[in-house]
Amino acid sequence: MDNKQIIQWNIQQSKKNIKKNILKDRIIIFFTRIVEDLGKYKNPNFYGRLKELFLSIYPYFDFKDTKQIYDHFKKLNFKSREGLLLDKEEIDYVKFFINNLDSNCKIKDRNKVEPKIKEMLSLLVKKYLPNSSVLIEPYLLGKIISSVGGIKNLYRKPSSTIQLIGAERAMFRHISKKKPSPKYGLIYYSGKIQNAKDKGKTSRRLANKLILGIRIDYFQMFAQ
């Protein structure tokens, strides 16, 4: 093989193996972040989120101008050999979202769209995380996954870490300013903890169960 062929072989091989690392958690993270943005801002624009999703589907696409992302999505056929492959239902979700954006990538009719998005997110989480999503609210599970950047970064973590995901700032205060150490992170917002008398103990127990569920879901639904 000459140099050119060697380089081509490596590019193809890398693409093939990278694709195996682009998992369906991307679509969960996409909708989780949209719901998060909607909670934080009055009328956010979704250029950045659309770009992230577009690059999951077409990782090697070269944008001339990211402002055109909206037009790209309108034309998108969602058939990708190099990135994330969505099923029919997921494509419909994404299309629903895009069709409800104006050309500034802002949602046109928020009152109508937001509940639908939350429902779609919930369905996606339940579909790909059937074991862990019965333990905690789907949106919180989505947030846990998105805050560590994906399920692959999550399933190997010990339950003590799971318990504290989302409490990084409190942890930092604990270390740098000798404030009390945080007992819980995102899972604190789960109904189970909110209603519990002993919140520390309950959150520990929930984290223990949750990580087992997440591991099962990872191996059943994501691992190749």
């Binding site: 590019i11 091989q13 890398s14 693409k15 990278i18 090697y60």
Partner: peptide, 22 residues
Amino acid sequence: PQMAINLVRLSKKRQNIAPIFS
């Protein structure tokens, strides 16, 4: 994976970079 995607993009622009995702 995220870094390797950028490497692959780079190697398409240059002539002599072989990206190895490993």
